[in-house]
Structures are given as C-alpha cells and as structure tokens.
C-alpha cells in the first residue's frame, strides 16, 4: 500500500471522517479549513498519529504548517524523515 492511501485511511478512521472514502480525498487539497475541514484538535491528533504510525516527529508549528498542507505534503514529509523513531503501532510494513 502506498503512503498516500495509508494516510487517507488513517485520517478517515482516526479523525472520524464520516461518509467519505480514500478516493474522495484529493491528494493536493488542503487538510484544514476549506479542504477536509479539519481543526486544531485534529492537528494535535494528526501529530500523534504520524509519530506512532510512521515514527516521524512533527516538532513545531512551522513543521506542522508544512506537513499538514495536504496529503501530498504530509506524505512527502514522512518519506523524507521515515525511520527517525521506531513506530509505536502497526506501521506501513504491517
């Protein structure tokens, strides 16, 4: 499974995005505001989710702003930093 599909599945499951599937999420669309409509609480959850699933730490607000711009941006952020930390839960390899 590619990282974008895995990310979308995690977003739908963990952030309770009801009535949509991975195919409904545009890789380039903003995650927050007008895009998926996520909010600040979702951002905190997403930060934790990325660390425990992919072993990547989002260290500060600037990093979050870059990483959370879209699914494409988040996938890119994870791919360049993957393996910094061990995953706390089932990661992509599982």
């Amino acid at each position: 499974m590619d990282i974008r599909t895995a990310l979308k599945q995690e977003l739908i499951k963990e952030l309770r995005l009801e009535d949509i599937g991975p195919e409904d999420i545009d890789n380039a669309a903003p995650l927050f505001g007008e895009g998926l409509g996520l909010d600040s609480l979702d951002a905190v959850e997403l930060t934790v989710l990325v660390q425990r699933r992919f072993g990547v730490i989002i260290e500060d607000i600037d990093a979050a702003r870059e990483a959370f711009a879209s699914v494409d941006a988040l996938a890119g952020y994870i791919e360049t930093r993957k393996g910094e930390l061990p995953c706390a839960g089932p990661g992509l390899s599982q």
């Binding site: 905190v44 934790v48 425990r52 706390a88």
Partner: peptide, 14 residues
C-alpha cells in the same frame, strides 16, 4: 495502554 502516555489519543482524551 496501547501507545503510552505520550502518544495516547488527544481526541479520545477530549
């Protein structure tokens, strides 16, 4: 229990 105190779900807490 699954992820420890640091990585527990903030949404579940809220």
């Amino acid at each position: 229990l699954a992820y420890g105190e640091i990585l527990a779900s903030p949404l579940a807490f809220s």
